[in-house]
Design a protein around this nucleic acid. Sequence first.
DNA 1: ACCTGAACACCGTTCAAGT
DNA 2: ACCTGAACACCGTTCAAGT
Lengths: 181, 181
Amino acid sequence: MALTREQVVDAAVGVLAGFGLADLSMRRLARELDVQVGALYWHVKNKQELLVDVAARLLGGIEHLPDAAATPREAVTSLATAIRAALAPVPDSAEVVQLAQTMQPAALEPLTWLRELLEEAGVAPQRSAWARHLLLNHILGSVAAQQDRSRLEAVGGTGGPDLGTDAFAWGVETILDGLGI
Amino acid sequence: MALTREQVVDAAVGVLAGFGLADLSMRRLARELDVQVGALYWHVKNKQELLVDVAARLLGGIEHLPDAAATPREAVTSLATAIRAALAPVPDSAEVVQLAQTMQPAALEPLTWLRELLEEAGVAPQRSAWARHLLLNHILGSVAAQQDRSRLEAVGGTGGPDLGTDAFAWGVETILDGLGI
DNA sequence: ACCTGAACACCGTTCAAGT
DNA sequence: ACCTGAACACCGTTCAAGT
């Protein structure tokens, strides 16, 4: 049975989740899939394009319209939290999303919803693109900072109660306060 | 005359400013300095340590206490703007600073001043570390976004009036508003 | 003290040739 | 259509040996 692009992305997500971006090489992927390196280039144009698919997969499980009952502001908070939760367990996920966002912004749907929700919550259309960036920088920065910390703890981790969550939630509230919504 | 660590850092900053992080390899540096690669490793422990020095150099020209006459809030804005101005012309500088910040936070003095100024402006000491991160993520995110845009324009650039500046200033004000200072 | 030469163990990408 | 084999042009790091 022939290799599929799906399988290549699966393997890439697996290596990223298990070992981080430094170990995610095309050659490692080929080994994992029992093919030669060149075979991968029939299914993906290059590594960057593959990473866009990886980012999309990481964010793929996020649902739109989480709570019809919530206030518009709570809807923003809820989506931001869902994005963070999806990225937090995967090492270097913030870097991968940032890259994908730069190369193909439209490929990461949940990140575009952020702008819509901000407008529904009262942010002016002229400001919503900037506001989305502000929020996204906070989300990705929080994820990266938390993962850097856990890298230092290494295996002898303290197993603490996820201190990053408080800082993250506070940051979201601070931004929304600043937006006056 | 023997090679110095200073010269290695100089060369690294030069390659980064001129060609970006992708071209900043130890081998390229050795070529530029007319030595063998191994020679570099007598002056720096590894590439990461060198990049910390590069980041420190990029931020090294920033002065503390810019305006004694300014309000505390203006002092924060002024420092944030100075940091952005120092990084904006150097490709991939945000990535390099983020790496350095992770590896040796104390090595980047101007970034530590940000916290002090925020406290002087009225941010509670328990919140000032989080607030600094929020602001820093905005600064670095703005720099990266602007450089990504100018990468797409490439050589045939429109030469527009630096649209990123407005978004940056607005973001700083929004964060400070959210902090209630 | 400072550097060379050479090696080790990797990379991403391409492409003729096979099936 | 899909993959192999092999090459091209690179990496970061180490280290005996030279001066």
